[in-house]
Amino acid sequence: MRMAASSVGPFYCPGDMKLYIDLSFYQELKQEFQAPGDFAMAYVIAHEVGHHVQTLLGTTEKEMPDRSKVGETEYNRYSVRLELQADYLAGVWAHHAQGENLLEEGDLEEALNAASGVGDDRIQKRHRVTWFQTASRTVHPNRENGGSIKDLNPVI
């Protein structure tokens, strides 16, 4: 077992298939990332669940190279792809939530603020917004790909 501190932010661990969230992140979203609102938090959860979906579908294992075997640049390239796909999967969820009439005015903007605010320097934040937006606006994974969620694969 390894320790992780709140400073890591919310995360998903493929090894035990659990999401880890310190609720103080809600305040961080508001104060440090200028992304207030409950739907900003909902986006964060849906993004972590996206990593779980990737893990169940085998994407994480396939896309996540062994850090001891590849250089940092290549490792980052793959992990950025996983992050952006998780944003897309969060958008798929938001699309459904919208269909269920759960969204209030300003909710999608709250999520987009979180998508553009959170993340490290490896990720071009505008890409996060694009992937979340694409899915939340129009896309149903089955229809978009003419097939299976197994085929979900953002090209960046």
């Binding site: 992780a4 661990c13 493929p14 659990k18 999401l19 310190d22 103080s24 996540m64 996983l82």
Partner: peptide, 25 residues
């Protein structure tokens, strides 16, 4: 396919997981 529901751990300060650097944010 079957969706296996994930667990969500609420914690404060620090927590133990099965992951070192292999966690996804």
């Amino acid at each position: 396919l079957e969706y296996k529901e994930p667990k969500l751990v609420l914690y404060s300060g620090s927590v133990e997981s099965a992951c070192g650097w292999q966690l996804l944010r």
